[in-house]
């Protein structure tokens, strides 16, 4: 789907050894597979089923999502800040599509 657009908010500045709060949101319908269209046909399930965040090659959070997650899935969590700057966010969609975005932490 072309309308999958991640939005990520990192703290303005971070310090090594401290937790940094990360807020992520990805635009996605999260179609549950339970709804029916106007003709009574079931709309097939199409959701983001997994979300991961990696920092410095290590996993921060690995989330499994079900249809009960709201449209435009929002996830908030903390990273333990170390030396590395790159944070890699990955969303896995039903059907195999993968969306990745890399962000940089700003040390201050």
């Amino acid at each position: 789907m072309s309308d999958v657009k991640p939005r990520i908010r990192l703290p303005r500045s971070v310090k090594a050894g401290q937790a940094a709060e990360v807020k992520t949101l990805v635009s996605h319908v999260m179609e549950t597979g339970l709804r029916k269209d106007a003709d009574g046909n079931t709309i097939p399930r199409m959701i983001i089923n997994r979300f991961t965040c990696e920092y410095g090659g290590e996993m921060v959070i690995d989330m499994a999502l079900e249809g009960a997650i709201s449209a435009n899935p929002y996830v908030e969590f903390d990273i333990m800040v170390g030396e590395a700057t790159d944070v890699v966010f990955t969303w896995y969609e039903d059907g195999g599509a993968v969306y990745t975005q890399t962000e940089q932490l700003a040390f201050g």
Binding site: A19, E54, E58, M59, V60, F77
Partner: peptide, 9 residues
């Protein structure tokens, strides 16, 4: 949610 080694909380 699975928390990895780089999780801050």
């Amino acid at each position: 949610f699975k928390f990895g080694p780089a999780a801050g909380s």
